[in-house]
Design a protein around this nucleic acid. Structure first.
Lengths: 202, 202
DNA sequence: GAGCCGACCCGACGAAAGTAGGGTCCCCAC
DNA sequence: GTGGGGACCCTACTTTCGTCGGGTCGGCTC
């Protein structure tokens, strides 16, 4: 029998999941309300699978996942959350999660998914995998003016100031001005750092 | 009943998979030996799930997946291959695949995985998801010498020539030399392009 | 309207980056 | 064993960057 630890700061959710999974022939051995408790209960019960919420008070789901993944012979951690944001999924994977499901997953399917995860596979809600194909995004460029952002993106294509000027119909001197102000706004030291940032921002 | 199309250039593999899946209560409606045939059979049979091999003669698995994903109301395509390389996984996802399994997957688990995929979830072999957390890799830097690569990676952290020199105990002039030769070897115009490339290469 | 602020442009000058060239060392081929 | 060829390090010179200061225009406050 597959043993499961359910982690969610909302007791109602824990109870609901427990009911569903137990009814489907899984064994929910415990539930935790935050990350610290989750880590503790994993040590105590050594479950096969951990269903982990992300947003929780104190130690959040990512941190808890990382701690659990660092254990000897760790359980399979599957994130179960409402947020499909690319950055969340990536951080979960980096922390060692072996799956990322949305809470919109039909309850009847959840048990199957947990079972599959217990067999050592990774399971994802369809909406969460699309963003993984490309590089991660970043939105620190938001503080820049429109022109500055345009220039930054051209730097990310490897353009020189003169080339940027041509493309944007500006003097090279003007371009230099934009680069310079973007650097100070973002607290960077040179165009290369700006280009790297812009490249990550897509 | 979940209907499945199996695509593999090796008839033995197709037959084996068919046996396994049929025994587990799935309905393998057809098998295809290359990508073109796969597309055709998807149109004819409209299966729920396509199990797609990657390396095939003619139209390969990626191309076939892309064509299938572009159809109206497309089936769920799950890649089933022997290769776990990050680049393959990413290209499969980009093409529209909803899963990536290795052929080392135990046959008994395969049916469950297909069923889960048919429900609209994405399924992955554990070994294939680790690389997705970070940005994609690139190995054009292979043509560089060891020193040149070191310098390139430091550029990718936004270092100036002087800083690179400090970290590597070299003169700034020497660093410039490495940058310059790396640029000509890779046919690039400036340090920013080199930094971007190195950043993608990790 | 006066004053302020930010986005948008440009010129000049010092500070980086990039190029060309010249050395040493080591390895491999002929 | 000598003549490439490559990696490695450096100096001197040109090109490109980045900063600083200075302009205009529009919107906003008081």
């Amino acid at each position: 029998m597959v043993t499961v630890l359910v982690v969610d700061d909302e007791p109602m959710v824990c109870a609901h999941l427990t009911t569903i999974l137990d009814a489907a022939g899984l064994d929910v051995v415990a539930t935790a309300g935050d990350g610290a408790e989750a880590v503790e209960l994993v040590v105590r019960h050594a479950p096969d699978v951990v269903l982990m919420d992300l947003r929780m008070p104190g130690v959040d789901g990512i941190a808890a996942t990382a701690r659990i993944a660092a254990m000897a012979d760790p359980p399979t951690v599957v994130v179960l959350t409402t947020f499909a944001a690319d950055a969340h999924v990536r951080r979960a994977l980096q922390a060692g999660a072996a799956g990322y499901l949305l809470k919109s997953t039909p309850p009847t399917e959840l048990a199957d998914l947990v079972r599959v995860a217990a067999q050592g596979h990774a399971v994802f809600s369809r909406a969460t995998v699309g963003g993984l194909a490309g590089p991660p995004a970043d939105d620190r460029l938001a503080v820049l003016s429109a022109r500055e952002r345009e220039v930054a993106f051209l730097l990310a294509e490897g353009c020189t100031n003169a080339e940027v000027g041509q493309r944007l119909h500006l003097t090279e001197a003007t371009v230099k001005g934009y680069v310079s102000s973007a650097l100070t706004k973002l607290d960077l030291q040179n165009r290369t750092q700006l280009a790297l940032l812009a490249a990550r921002s897509r």
